[in-house]
Computed example of a mutant assay.
Amino acid sequence: MDDPPLTVWINLKQAAYRNGFGKGLDQAHVDQGWYRLRSTTTPFQVHVAASGVNGPWLLAYTEPRIAADLLPGTAYLGPRPAQTGLMLNSLSDLAAALLQIYHLVTEALKPSAYQEFLDQTQSLPDTTEAERVAIVRTAQGIFRRHLDTYWNQACAITGMRDRELLRASHIKPWTASNDYERVDVYNGLLLSALWDAAFDQGLVSFSDDGHLLVSMKLSDRAIAVLTDGRPVTVPISAGHAPYLNDHRLRHGFAALDS
């Protein structure tokens, strides 16, 4: 997409400023025709482009919790810098979509770890190995912080609170996940070191309602040490389900809901 004319940026600045995305509008951040818009009150960001001076306008964002049908416009499936794309016929429709997104991410939805990751890494270079390691560490720090909050800084199974013994365990492996999944709080369990090792090696898993599933590879002694002879369940939500399904399939468990 070609770089848009100045008139597009002037119109877009006004719509962004009035509808929650007024951060850094003194300078346009544009890549291949897509402007990046940020908010002063939330790390959430969106990308906007225009087919012409008078539109249609294109809006792209990555947040699975915001369904496209909640916003004005129609689906845009062309090349875009984010997961969800919309086409809006007028600047007023774009403004309405921006305002609706802003209200959702500041009032209805908990802060997104992915948007926090974007906000912290957008301007970081990634040309050297050291720079890429810095980005990975940023992602891992965000993931751990959000897991700590979600699980109230305690092991999801035992309730243990000794931080040195707790691990931020990905359900779907880091190497198999995209950037969103790598920091998604639902792709993680906060586990004590022993439970983390068992889960990471696929010796245990969980059903969609949180019941423990045990691999045939795990010894009776190990099961006794892990469970202390008690039934084990984890209080999980619907957001964990696709990740747990991936874990079960990856490690040879039946893909059961219970």
Rank of each mutant, 00 (worst) to 15 (best):
L37T: 01
R161K: 15
I171V: 09
A224R: 13
Y102S: 11
W195T: 00
I223T: 10
L25N: 04
H251P: 01
K13A: 11
R145H: 09
L203H: 02
S258E: 12
S258I: 13
A197H: 05
V183M: 02
E63W: 01
G239M: 00
D148N: 14
A75E: 14
Q120E: 09
Y35F: 12
A130M: 14
T175A: 15
L244W: 03
P43Q: 06
I171F: 07
L98V: 05
G239S: 02
A198W: 02
S112Q: 03
R65C: 09
D179G: 14
R36Q: 13
T138C: 15
Y61M: 00
L71Y: 06
T40Q: 14
T74V: 15
S169A: 06
R161W: 07
R163C: 08
P235M: 07
Y180A: 14
A241M: 09
A97R: 00
D228H: 11
D200A: 04
A16Q: 09
F143T: 07
R80N: 08
A255L: 13
P235A: 07
T62M: 08
N245T: 12
I66A: 04
T227Q: 05
D228E: 11
L191Q: 01
L71G: 00
Y150S: 09
V48G: 06
T149K: 10
T227G: 02
